Amino acid sequence: MAAVNKHAKIILAATKVFAKKGFFNSRISDIAKEAKVADGTIYLYFNNKYDILLSIFEEEVGKIFDKTQQLLSEEEDPRRMLEIFTNQHLRQMKKNKNLAEVIQIELRQTNKVIKNYRNNKFSSYINIIAEIIRKGQKQGVFRPDILPDVAKRAFFGALDEVSRVWNVSLETHYTVDEITHQVLSLFLSGILIENPGKH
């Protein structure tokens, strides 16, 4: 088997194992077993468990990042750009449910090794949201008082939670487009009725 294929096979196996057992409970031997390789083979490609986790984000999230950037490059309306990002993200999470679970690890991870490693594709991916918000502010479409770096986390946090729960229990009830519309409606319009009647 070619080295590239073994590397990809280990990444795929690790994503599955991390999603099922959790990062801290997973062992290199679990990943090796899932990948059907010897334990020692893992160390030919990765230094340790953290290295594998970071590689998942670099490679798997990297693919989503590239595809999203490509789609967004053809659009100028920031509202439409947020819709594209949301729809694309949900579709990818539906296609790769293990990756959706592993993203939870990154978002909730408090370990210093991961916490200090922020120059990665995952950070760049979430920063797309902040860039869209800044673009909308420059165009006078989005409120100028919104802090893009806070908004990106609020928005992605909502997307992340929706995709996680949706994959487990809501998938049979709602389509990707319906979820996209709901998230965007909440984010762009809020939940207040304009000029509500007096009670």
Rank of each mutant, 00 (worst) to 15 (best):
Lys94His: 11
Asn25Met: 05
Tyr43Thr: 04
Gly136His: 05
Phe187Ile: 09
Ile52Lys: 10
Gln137Asn: 00
Glu59Tyr: 05
Lys67Val: 10
Glu34Arg: 02
Val176His: 10
Ser185Glu: 09
Lys121Pro: 04
Leu186Ser: 13
Lys135Ala: 02
Asn47Thr: 13
Ile31His: 04
Glu178Trp: 04
Met93Trp: 11
Lys152Gln: 13
Ser169Gln: 07
Gly140Met: 03
Tyr174His: 10
Glu74Thr: 13
Thr86Gly: 00
Gly140Arg: 06
Ala35Met: 00
Leu12Tyr: 01
Ile133Leu: 11
Asp77Ile: 01
Gly190Thr: 10
Leu54Arg: 14
Thr41Gln: 00
Arg108Trp: 10
Val168Tyr: 11
Phe85His: 00
Lys152Gly: 02
Ser73His: 05
Pro144Tyr: 02
Arg153Gln: 13
Phe24Leu: 10
Arg80Gln: 08
Ala14Ile: 03
Asn98Ile: 04
Val168Pro: 04
Tyr50Trp: 14
Ile103Trp: 12
Phe122Ser: 11
Ile126Glu: 08
Phe57Trp: 10
Lys94Trp: 10
Lys67Glu: 15
Phe24Asp: 15
Leu12Ala: 03
Ile11Ala: 00
Ile114Leu: 14
Asn127Thr: 06
Leu107Met: 15
Lys36Asn: 03
Val168Asn: 08
Val162Ile: 15
Leu188Val: 06
Lys94Gln: 15
Phe122Asp: 09
Ala158Asn: 12
Leu192Tyr: 07
Glu76Leu: 05
Leu159Met: 12
Phe65Pro: 03
His181Lys: 14
Asn120Ala: 09
Lys20Gln: 10
Gly62Arg: 05
Tyr45Asp: 01
Leu188Glu: 12
Asn25His: 14
Ala158Ser: 12
Pro78Met: 01
Gly197Ile: 13
Ala130Lys: 07
Gln69Pro: 01
Lys97Cys: 07
Asn98Glu: 13
Phe46Gln: 03
Leu147Ser: 06
Asp177Arg: 08
Lys121Gln: 15
Ile56Ala: 13
Val102Gln: 12
Glu131Gly: 00
Leu44Ser: 09
Ala130Leu: 01
Asn116Trp: 06
Val113Trp: 09
Asn111Thr: 06
Arg118Gly: 14
His89Gly: 02
Gly190Val: 09
Ala151Gln: 09
Ser26Ile: 02
Ser124Asn: 10
Lys21Trp: 03
Thr86Phe: 03
Asn87Trp: 02
Lys112Met: 09
Glu131Ser: 06
Lys16Tyr: 02
Ile114Gly: 07
Phe46Asp: 03
Met81Lys: 15
Leu12Glu: 05
Asn167Leu: 09
Leu170Ser: 05
Ala13Asp: 00
Pro144Ser: 07
Val168Lys: 15
Pro148Gly: 02
Gly62Lys: 06
Lys63Val: 08
Gly62Tyr: 04
Ile84Val: 04
Ile11Thr: 00
Ile84Trp: 02
Ile56Leu: 15
Ile52Arg: 06
Lys152Asp: 02
Ala2Leu: 05
